[in-house]
């Protein structure tokens, strides 16, 4: 991990760190890299990934409308709306 990669990660995640936060982040990454070395000592050559800890049966269900909300309700927490639309700065020049 170096500052250039950190800057790239900041850009990807829409974040800007202060100099102090960058130092803390670099120390955090260094500690985690040491931890990760422990994983390399475990042989996983013929081991399958485990994405779900319990068997997932199915997420498919009948296409039936259940709980619904009005547009007004859905926008109650929006920072800025106008006539039912969410407002953002102009994105097309």
């Amino acid at each position: 991990m170096d500052r250039e990669i950190l800057r790239h990660l900041e850009m990807l995640n829409q974040l800007q760190l202060t100099e102090e936060q960058k130092e803390a982040a670099l120390a955090f990454f260094a500690a985690r890299e040491q931890d990760n070395a422990l994983l390399d000592t475990i042989d996983t050559e013929n081991v399958e990934r485990m994405v779900h800890v319990m068997p997932i049966m199915t997420v498919v269900r009948e296409d039936v409308v259940k709980q619904t909300f009005t547009r007004e309700a859905l926008q109650q927490d929006a920072p800025e709306t106008d006539e039912g639309y969410w407002c953002v700065p102009r994105v097309v020049e």
Partner: peptide
């Protein structure tokens, strides 16, 4: 602009540890 809206909102609202963990997770 829209990029600054995203970046400034997340940067101002998220705490120090959360930002670090987001970057670690992303990496």
């Amino acid at each position: 602009g829209i990029d600054e809206l995203y970046t400034n909102s997340r940067t101002e609202a998220f705490g120090d540890l959360l930002k670090t963990v987001i970057l670690f997770g992303s990496e």
